[in-house]
Every structure is written in C-alpha cells, then in structure tokens.
Design a protein around this nucleic acid. Structure first.
Lengths: 214, 214
DNA sequence: TAGATTGTTAATCGATTAACAATC
DNA sequence: TAGATTGTTAATCGATTAACAATC
C-alpha cells in the first residue's frame, strides 16, 4: 500500500482518473462486479489494455470472475492519493476561481480550500462558501503559516509567474495552473496545467478538417 | 492551403497549440527568426521532434537559416483553423460559463459568442459582455436559427447529456465539454473535453508519490 | 565557399494489442 | 469438472530520436 509507482508510465497514470470515474458510476448503478471485457465496452479502452493497466499496480482481479468494482474503485482512489486531504488556496477569485471553489469533485475528494486571493478590492473581504477572499499581498505569509500544499492559479497570465514565485518561496508543494503559460518552478515542485485554450484550438482544428472533407 | 491532415497523428496535432503560443511570445518579443535548436530550448521538445512535426504540414523552414517566426505562427494558426470565425453558445451561465465568456483567447481567436443559456431565472435576462443569457428552453431553436457551430457545455454533469441531445438535434457541429462525463453523440459530431478533475487527480497522484519518496 | 540548419530516412524506444497458460 | 476471465509474455504498432545528405 505504500509502494511507489515511479516505474509506471505516465500514459497509464493519465488513464486512472477515467477508470475511477467509470467505477464510481458502476457503483452508483449497484454493479459490484465487472470483467475487463465489459469495462472495455463502457470505457472504450481495449480489454487487454485495461488488464495491462491494472496489473501495473497489483492483481486486483480474479481469474474466471473479473474485478470487484468497489475494491477496484477504492484501490484506484488510493493510488491517485484521494485517500487523504490536501490544503489548498485559489489565487484569482474571479469567475474561474469561484467556479473551481464550487466545483463538486474539488470539494468532494478532499481538497480543502483555506482561502482565495485577489487584487480586486471589491472582492477582498467577500466570502465564497464561507471561505475568505484575502488580498493577494497576504498570499506568501498565509501559505507559509497554514502549510498550504496546493496553489491553484486562476489569475490572468500576466501575473501567473509572479504568483508562482511567491507560492514557491512559501514552500508550496504543487501548483494547479489554469493560466495559459508554462510556469518556471524549482524542480521539486509539481505543476499540473489545464491549458483550456489548447483544447479549444484542437476543437477548431477538428471542425476545420471535417469541413474540408465534407 | 486546403489540404487535409487526416494522415497526421493526433500526437502531433496536440502539440500545435503549444507551438502557436510560443511563436506568439517570440513575435511579441520581436524575434523574427528561430532554429529548431533554439525553439527546442524554449519549448522543451527535441529539435528533431520539432522538425519532424513541422514537416507534417510542409517545408516551413529554410536550410541554414531556420524558421521565419511570423510565417510559422500564421501557418500554424491556419492549420488550427484560427483563420476564420466560429459561432458559439455557452450552456450554463454560472461562474464557469461566465469565465469562458470572458476568457481572452476565446474572444481573441474568432470564437463569437452569440448567447448564453441557463435554467436559473435570476440569470436569464442578464447580459455578459453585451451578450444575452436566455432560458435553456430556447436553446434548440436558437442554435438552429442562428446556425451555431460550437456548443460549450458549462452545466452540472447531471444535465450535460440532455443538453448535448438538444444541441445535436439542432445541428451543432462541435461540442466543447467541461462536464465530467463522456457525452454520447452521433459520429459526425466532434467533442473535445476539458476534464478538469482528471487533471486535479493527476496532481494529487504526483504529490502523493513525491511524499512517499521524500 | 564555409557554416548552419533543414528535411528526411533509418534506428530506437515505448506503448498497445494479441495470445494463451494459469487459475478461480 | 467446465467455463470464464485474469495475469503476463510475446508480437505489433506507432512515436520519438538520431543521423546525415541536401541546400540555403
């Protein structure tokens, strides 16, 4: 249970959240047992890939039976680190910051929001879900004093690197970045990007391609 | 210029927006010429991969010189379909929908927002950037009558499939989906997902892994 | 011309799929 | 026991990297 998975490729890791989501859906539908073949039909990966993927983490299945949905769901949750709580702050309390603060999976899976930060004096002092919006000048001190692990950047891209520097100096462990730039961080800090515009451009590419073919 | 790129792998396509972004930054810094080696140092792909990638679309470079930044930027923009305008609607006018409506690259790269839609009577009738929020009951008719190409789903996941069905019946061409589910659509409709929680779970995985090793 | 750097082929590496023995 | 399905090895496929001739 405390093995590390440094040998498992990121291609596999990036599929885990999708397994987790489908297994949750199955549990909600009171399906307690599933074979790689049935799961394949639902999730769209090949049965072979599913067995291969799951085996990177241990033998969760049983020959002749399949996988126990509840057990597998929990195991994948544990692998993803969802069995514990994370302390977080959101920097940028505009629409995006507020959307994240209220995002159901964010709240549900143990991401504890300790504060939001903004430059806008109209926002500072307000609350979102009972959580204060502070002046961004207080960010560094707050993160240090409250041992915040995750900083969530929902600011305009122009100030994202400055915010990052502040967070890093205050011993943040990871950054969830929504600004459309690649942040420079010391090598022991983990950055996960949500580059929304890249996804939009892929959509426009695909639409454009399709219109050429039709 | 009207070739289609069906033969180019999605791995390559998904790197294009990043090239596009870095080339824009270079242009803004008044850098007009770059070699694959220099670009490699900036963007973090190997020089070999950069040359390989760009060559899928034609010989944009010049031996002994490198690439013309402005030309390459424009070409990649064209390949991504950013040389034309798309008509869009946003379904779900909460924080996320409003964040998208105001998102700078969205506005800048030709994605014309024609309307937002919501069930909440407090929101219906309001405006975001001079664009009306309509009742979601009007969605189908509006999309059909205004020849909307892209539907952007910013609703809770519980209603995302219903919205999708409405959009598809109204001849939408593509869907940009922010709800954490996999939408079922007829095969000629393009869906591009932004599965925000998957990214969050990867961050939590990486943080958890790191804490095991330290 | 000499130097630089691309375009492109060949080699390597990694990820996915197929196959099947092990076993519940 | 017979049927089902995993775990796992081997085969295939695709993507990345290396190398270098072409050429500006």
């Amino acid at each position: 249970m405390n093995r590390d998975f440094t040998d498992v490729s990121m291609a596999v890791i990036r599929r885990l959240p999708k397994y987790h989501r489908y297994l949750k859906d199955l549990l909600d539908k009171e399906v307690y047992r599933i074979s790689s073949r049935e799961l394949s039909r639902l999730i769209g990966f090949t049965a072979s890939q599913i067995r291969q993927d799951l085996n990177c983490f241990g033998g969760f299945g049983q020959q002749g039976y399949g996988y126990n949905v509840e057990e597998l769901y929990k195991e994948i949750g544990n692998i993803l680190g969802l069995n514990r709580v994370y302390s977080t702050v959101i920097v940028g309390a505009g629409n995006l910051g507020q959307a994240i603060a209220n995002y159901p999976s964010f709240v549900k899976y143990g991401f504890e929001l300790h504060g939001l930060f903004d430059v806008n004096p109209k926002l500072v002092g307000m609350k979102i879900r009972d959580i204060n919006i502070y002046d961004v000048d207080e960010l560094g001190t707050f993160v240090k004093e409250n041992d915040i692990e995750i900083g969530i950047i929902c600011s305009p891209k122009e100030v994202a690197q400055d915010i990052t520097d502040t967070l890093c100096k205050a011993n943040i462990k990871g950054i969830w970045n929504f600004a459309p730039i690649d942040l420079k961080v010391p090598k022991d800090i983990i950055v996960e990007n949500v580059h929304v515009s890249e996804s939009l451009f892929i959509l426009s590419f695909l639409l454009n391609e399709k219109s050429k073919r039709d």
